[in-house]
Each structure stands twice: as C-alpha cells, then as structure tokens.
C-alpha cells in the first residue's frame, strides 16, 4: 500500500486504526479521502477506527465522511480524539469514541468471562449522576452519595464508594464490585443486596455474590 507522511495505518484486533499525525486543519478531509482512494483495495470491507488527535470535526463533516467510507465499503467503527467537539460529533452519530472502546486486556480476572469491554470513567461521579453500561465499568475517582451506577458486568472503583452500585444487573452472578473504600449500603450484585450491619472499613474491599449472599472481602487477596 501507498504511504503518506501524515496518515498511518495499524492493525488492532479486528480493526484498523488510521492515525492522522499532523494537524491538517481544513485540508484534512480532502487528504484523508485521497488516502482512502489510494488504498481502496487494501481497505475494502475493513473496520476502521479513525484517530484524529486534536482535530476538530463537526457532526456534518463526520456524517459526510462516514457516507464516503460507506460508499467505499469501509465501516467506521470508532473515532478517537482529544477534542470534546469531535467526540460529541461522534456520539451524535452513534459512532463509538475512545472512552467506550477502551478494552481491558484480561476481563476474566474481574470475575466475568462473557464480557470483553470496559468503560473507563476518569472523574468524580456526583450526586444525581446515573451511569448505565452493558459492559464492565472502571471509575478512577470517587462515587459520591446520591449517584447510581448500573452495569451488566463488574464495577471497579479506584476511590471511595458512597453511592449506589448495581453490578451484574442482567443476572450475572460472577460480577463483582471493587472499591478502595466501601462506604455504601446500596450495593447489589445480580439483584442481591449487600448484607447489612457491616462496620466501615477503610481498606480496599470487594463485594462477591456467593450462595445468594453478597459479602465483602479484602481486595488485597485478589491480584488484578
């Protein structure tokens, strides 16, 4: 395949990640389309993830770009960008962004073999926030009182848990809830609530469902 300085292609899983290295500004679309045309045969029927770095793309441009790719039998499986505008455009069109594409390498260690993806959230989950995901959820930050996380998989919290968490929502009994500090009564796994009356423990703990009872165990025993 032909090479262009500004655009590179790299395989990742079943997808091709196409990265635009330099800030191309308004010429980006033309250059990118030219690149696709040059490599049309190679890219035929491919699933591509477009990494545009700090480039701003509005929803209209992204829409026409996706149509252009569809015309060439290429499916746009995701858009990576450091710009919020671009991510918003992608979300508007239902194209996955970086946060929803981050994949945990070995999900089975999270007690959960059927799921292979995780959403990583790097902020404080505040009162009134509702997070609903069909995959594992990793929070880097605190989960404050009054917030709710519902997940079909496991929930890992690198911070203090004071909100409500429901892991394994659709009945996955292997789902678990991890937190650096467990300070909630609103934890459920597959519909079973955490047993009450446990005193507060300022240590990393994990909630596990065994024999229809959800118990807290020390997280130190488990190596992730």
């Amino acid at each position: 395949m032909k090479k262009t300085e500004n655009i590179t292609t790299k395989g990742k899983g079943d997808k091709l990640v196409i990265t635009c290295h330099q800030h191309l500004g308004t010429e980006f679309l033309e250059e990118f389309q030219a690149y696709i045309m040059q490599n049309e045969q190679f890219l035929h029927n491919a699933k591509i993830v477009l990494d545009v770095r700090d480039l701003e793309i509005n929803a209209n441009d992204l829409f026409s770009l996706r149509n252009f790719l569809n015309d060439h039998h290429i499916s746009l499986a995701g858009v990576y960008s450091t710009r919020e505008t671009t991510n918003t455009s992608a979300r508007l069109l239902g194209i996955p962004t970086q946060s929803s594409l981050n994949v945990i390498d070995n999900p089975s260690k999270l007690g959960n073999k059927s799921l292979d993806k995780a959403v990583i959230i790097q902020r404080t989950i505040r009162s009134g926030n509702l997070i609903e995901e069909s995959c594992d959820v990793v929070v880097v930050g605190d989960v404050n009182p009054g917030s709710v996380i519902r997940s079909d998989g496991s929930v890992v919290i690198w911070g203090k848990l004071q909100g409500e968490v429901h892991a394994g929502r659709s009945g996955n009994k292997n789902a678990r809830i991890y937190a650096l500090e467990f300070n909630t009564t609103g934890a459920k796994i597959a519909g079973v609530a955490l047993e009450a009356g446990k005193k507060k423990n300022k240590e990393p703990e994990v909630a596990v469902l065994e024999e229809n009872i959800v118990r807290l165990e020390s997280w130190k025993k488990i190596i992730i």
């Binding site: 919020e84 902020r123 505040r126 009162s127 009134g128 926030n129 009054g146």
Partner: peptide
Amino acid sequence: VRDADRIIGIIESEE
C-alpha cells in the same frame, strides 16, 4: 454538601 455535589455535577455537565 450533598446539594453542592449535585450542583457541581450539573455545572460540569454543562461545561
């Protein structure tokens, strides 16, 4: 403090 947390969440979501 709970209400402040809620309001900060809204402020963040409105950027």
